[in-house]
Simulated assay, not measured.
Amino acid sequence: MKRALIMGGVLGVVVSVLAPVGIGAADPAGPPGSVTEMSPLPQVVAVADASAALRLVYWSRGPRGPMQSSGAIYLPPGSPPPGGWPIVAYAHGTVGIADHCAFTVQPRRLYLDTVYPELLRAGYAVVLSDYVGLGTPGTHPYLDGPSQARSMIDGVRAARTVVPELSDRWAVLGQSQGGQTALFTARIAPEDAPELRLRGAVATGPPSNLENIAPLLGPWVPRLPLRMTTAYFASILVGLRETAPEVDVDSYLTPVGRDVLALVERECVAEADAMVRDISIGEMLAKPLADPALLAAARSMLRIPTEGHTVPLFIGQGVTDRDVPAPLSAGLVAELTLAGADLEVVVYPGDHLATARDSLPDTMAFLHRVLDSP
């Protein structure tokens, strides 16, 4: 009861202070992690094991300047340990680009029923970000690793400003798009946020080496025997258009390609996939993706840093993954190993989403190892 009263008081004070602040594009940007709105999370994304569940809107950093992100905090039951609850920042997988697809407003049962409860029972607070532009003003720069990582870092900063019971000790955990985000975060955060003690990163099914495929793409590419290929490719092009408008992405597209990009901007990824899966990448492209400026922009978005990692990493990969094929991850693992990263890799028999579920025992063991000591 005392814990509930404390959280209710914190929520009431912060909401009363922040509620008048709007989130329009004209608002002056605050420092990274500054909170502009806070409210209870919608019941549709509630977790029974959480003692409190809060939704935040906070300032972060997009590819070309300040942008806002929404996010959420789930707090464990009971009293916080000395030094506060360690944080697991959850980086979510691809949901789409349209605002209504945001992770904090649409229920994803695997995470609400399994992943988050497991983390909360272990005594970890869960902080997640929708990433900049997803549910907030502007376009979400899909697969722009640096801005996704900054969304996570600034989300942890934001959470700690409104919940003082949170520790400065944290780890990042991500699946798919979130796996890419976790690995970018692992590389960027120790320098970007030295006031936060990042202890490690878990990435399952992280898309990698996509920048090496880009020069091979053009009007000749047929339908591929992979999953959601066209929707993913179109979303990457939307992200590239947002991060590097100077490369004029639309000049590479056929009318079909422009229609597909418009569709993925307004539909969530599963719905978009159902509408575009019969369209090949080649049908979308009017010319090859061979311009050096475009390839350099794609590389800065997509290429996961493999050198300079200072925290332990865990990568889980599914053998039958048709969203992120295992050979791409094999190249990433080889590069990280050659660069001397503290790396643990486990291969699972299932596909993309199954790996997020099957890896959970290994993920929890890794998190206990890196987070449980002061």
Rank of each mutant, 00 (worst) to 15 (best):
P77N: 14
G78H: 11
S79K: 15
S79A: 15
S79L: 14
P81W: 10
P81M: 06
P81T: 02
P82A: 14
P82V: 08
G83W: 08
G83C: 13
G83A: 09
G83F: 05
G84V: 09
W85E: 00
P86L: 02
V88I: 11
V88C: 04
Y90K: 13
H92E: 10
G93V: 11
G93D: 11
V95Q: 15
A98R: 12
A98P: 00
A98H: 00
A102N: 13
T104F: 01
V105K: 09
V105Y: 00
Q106Y: 08
Q106K: 15
P107Q: 07
P107T: 04
P107L: 07
P107V: 11
R108K: 14
R109Y: 14
R109T: 14
R109L: 14
R109E: 13
L110G: 12
L112D: 01
L112R: 12
D113E: 15
Y116Q: 02
P117Y: 08
E118Q: 13
L119C: 05
L119K: 06
L120F: 01
L120A: 01
R121W: 01
G123K: 08
V126M: 02
V126T: 05
V127C: 06
S129C: 03
D130H: 09
D130C: 10
Y131G: 05
G133F: 07
L134A: 07
G135L: 03
T136C: 09
T136H: 08
G138I: 13
H140M: 00
H140C: 04
P141Y: 05
Y142G: 03
Y142Q: 11
Y142F: 15
L143C: 12
L143E: 04
D144F: 05
D144A: 03
D144M: 03
G145M: 04
A149I: 06
A149G: 02
A149C: 05
S151F: 03
M152H: 06
D154K: 06
D154H: 00
G155Y: 02
G155I: 05
V156N: 01
R157A: 03
A158P: 04
A158H: 02
A159T: 06
R160Y: 00
T161I: 05
T161L: 12
V162N: 11
V163S: 07
E165M: 12
E165L: 10
E165S: 15
L166P: 03
D168P: 11
D168N: 15
D168E: 15
W170T: 09
W170Q: 10
W170N: 02
V172G: 03
V172Q: 04
S176H: 08
Q177C: 07
Q177G: 09
G178T: 12
G179Q: 06
G179K: 02
Q180C: 12
Q180N: 13
Q180L: 14
A182C: 09
L183Y: 03
T185F: 05
A186I: 01
R187C: 10
A189P: 13
P190T: 08
E191A: 15
E191P: 03
D192F: 14
E195H: 01
L196Q: 07
L196N: 08
R197N: 13
R197E: 13
R197Q: 13
